[in-house]
Amino acid sequence: MADQLPEIELQDHGSKGRYVLRSPGGAEAEMTFTKVGEHKIIIDHTEVPDVFRGQGAGLRLVTRAVEDARASQKKIIPLCPFAAAQFRRHAEWADVLAS
């Protein structure tokens, strides 16, 4: 079912940004982040509206951030409770978890 979700869009606005999934009806699932220096980002908020519930949208947003962090050799500080829970469930993400 997650394969039917739209592509994730990265919106980078300097020191802040967000990953966004848009439904055909215009609803948005988002995960926001703040950059900390050159090598870290803080995931500070994840919001998934009802139209996306049960489709793995939140997990896809966090996974995309993990993939991007690996590609750019950055670390993630997951302050958002949802993102923090996903990091606890995915030990394979330890390489991008800020210590």
Results as ranks from 00 to 15, higher is better:
residue 48 V to G: 02
residue 63 T to H: 11
residue 56 G to V: 09
residue 99 S to C: 09
residue 74 K to T: 08
residue 94 A to V: 13
residue 85 A to S: 10
residue 41 I to E: 08
residue 64 R to M: 03
residue 55 Q to D: 13
residue 14 G to N: 14
residue 46 T to K: 06
residue 63 T to R: 13
residue 53 R to T: 15
residue 32 T to W: 08
residue 80 C to D: 01
residue 34 T to K: 10
residue 2 A to C: 12
residue 35 K to I: 12
residue 56 G to D: 02
residue 73 Q to G: 13
residue 6 P to L: 06
residue 68 D to S: 07
residue 34 T to W: 05
residue 71 A to Y: 11
residue 21 L to C: 09
residue 24 P to C: 06
residue 62 V to W: 06
residue 95 D to R: 09
residue 3 D to Y: 12
residue 50 D to L: 14
residue 38 E to N: 11
residue 82 F to N: 04
residue 49 P to Q: 02
residue 87 F to W: 10
residue 32 T to K: 10
residue 62 V to G: 07
residue 79 L to R: 12
residue 77 I to L: 00
residue 61 L to T: 10
residue 79 L to F: 09
residue 98 A to G: 05
residue 42 I to W: 14
residue 98 A to M: 08
residue 18 R to L: 02
residue 45 H to Y: 06
residue 97 L to G: 02
residue 51 V to A: 12
residue 70 R to F: 08
residue 76 I to W: 01
residue 25 G to F: 11
residue 61 L to G: 02
residue 99 S to Q: 15
residue 51 V to G: 04
residue 10 L to A: 05
residue 77 I to V: 15
residue 61 L to F: 03
residue 23 S to W: 01
residue 29 A to I: 08
residue 44 D to E: 12
residue 52 F to K: 00
residue 59 L to R: 09
residue 95 D to C: 11
residue 70 R to N: 07
residue 18 R to S: 07
residue 91 A to G: 09
residue 1 M to G: 15
residue 31 M to E: 01
residue 25 G to N: 15
residue 27 A to M: 06
residue 64 R to Q: 12
residue 46 T to S: 07
residue 82 F to D: 05
residue 46 T to E: 01
residue 72 S to R: 11
residue 29 A to Q: 05
residue 40 K to R: 10
residue 39 H to L: 14
residue 51 V to H: 01
residue 86 Q to R: 11
residue 45 H to F: 03
residue 4 Q to A: 13
residue 86 Q to D: 01
residue 74 K to C: 11
residue 44 D to W: 09
residue 25 G to M: 03
residue 83 A to K: 02
residue 39 H to Q: 13
residue 92 E to L: 08
residue 19 Y to H: 02
residue 14 G to K: 10
residue 65 A to R: 04
residue 53 R to F: 12
residue 55 Q to A: 14
residue 49 P to K: 00
residue 41 I to P: 06
residue 80 C to M: 02
residue 45 H to E: 04
residue 11 Q to E: 13
residue 56 G to W: 06
residue 21 L to G: 08
residue 72 S to W: 02
residue 97 L to F: 12
residue 4 Q to S: 07
residue 16 K to H: 13
residue 81 P to I: 14
residue 10 L to W: 04
residue 68 D to N: 01
residue 49 P to M: 04
residue 46 T to I: 06
residue 72 S to D: 09
residue 11 Q to G: 00
residue 54 G to E: 02
residue 73 Q to K: 14
residue 49 P to T: 05
residue 80 C to W: 03
residue 26 G to F: 03
residue 70 R to P: 14
residue 51 V to C: 05
residue 8 I to E: 04
residue 80 C to V: 07
residue 98 A to I: 08
residue 48 V to Y: 00
residue 54 G to M: 08
residue 96 V to Y: 00
residue 61 L to S: 04
residue 16 K to G: 05
residue 32 T to V: 10
